[in-house]
Amino acid sequence: MGKELLKIENLHIRVEENEIIQGLDLTVREGEVHAVMGPNGSGKSTLAYTLMGRPGYEITKGSVCFDGQDIREMEPEERAQAGLFLSFQYPIAIPGVTVGHFLMTALAALSEKGNGRYKEIRKTFRKDIKKYMEGLKIDPAFAQRYLNDGFSGGEKKRMEILQLLTLQPKLAIMDETDSGLDIDALKVVSQGVSEYLVQNPKASALVITHYQRILNHLKPHFVHILSKGKIISSGGPELAIKLENEGYRAFGIEDREPGPQPEGGIHGTT
């Protein structure tokens, strides 16, 4: 068994006045892929944002350790520097800043903190990014486009994977990476995530999703079902199959129609 990379114990999270996560336990070891599945409003995105340190997401109880460090008080950039990465469900547009410039700036920021491997990554950055873009079927001209500005939903998701491949974190949190993607795009994006996992055998992924389909590509070692801020069931890949066949009801969960998630509400208005 690999080393414990992420250890969450009895986590409680409050957003505004609401306690969204109510006692969550989860351990991810090196080299593992975990899927967290849940219906809308179960707290999936809240968990992702909180792990990344988004302002306004308050941990009221419990502990979160990443790579041996208590990250509860860490700034988002400190978490990124420690090796956490969040692939956003709704990536943000940064007008005036090109994809290439952003990636170089991010790499420079990460390597400044003394992490030697970023120096290595920077050496072959230009060559690698071309290769990654090709694999993700991103037009090379995108390197000169403004980050996520006017990109389609699918292009934005691919851009997140391009960042994942470039920045090579220890743990990738994939927040609904499959949402809004057609079958072909989903395949390309999943291959990108797989490539990252193959390249980094010790790296792990936390795949947050409503649907099972992305898991056909990213074979998870563990599947957790999230409901009302708690993990109500954990198991192997068979759990995802059961969910696919019998629906959330098989777990005693009432699944509302898919729609904008309440915890993504801030984005929903933009």
Binding site: P76, E77, A106
Partner: peptide
């Protein structure tokens, strides 16, 4: 938040 989450400090 987006930029900081990718490793850039404030």
């Amino acid at each position: 938040f987006y930029l900081r989450s990718k490793g850039l400090d404030k």
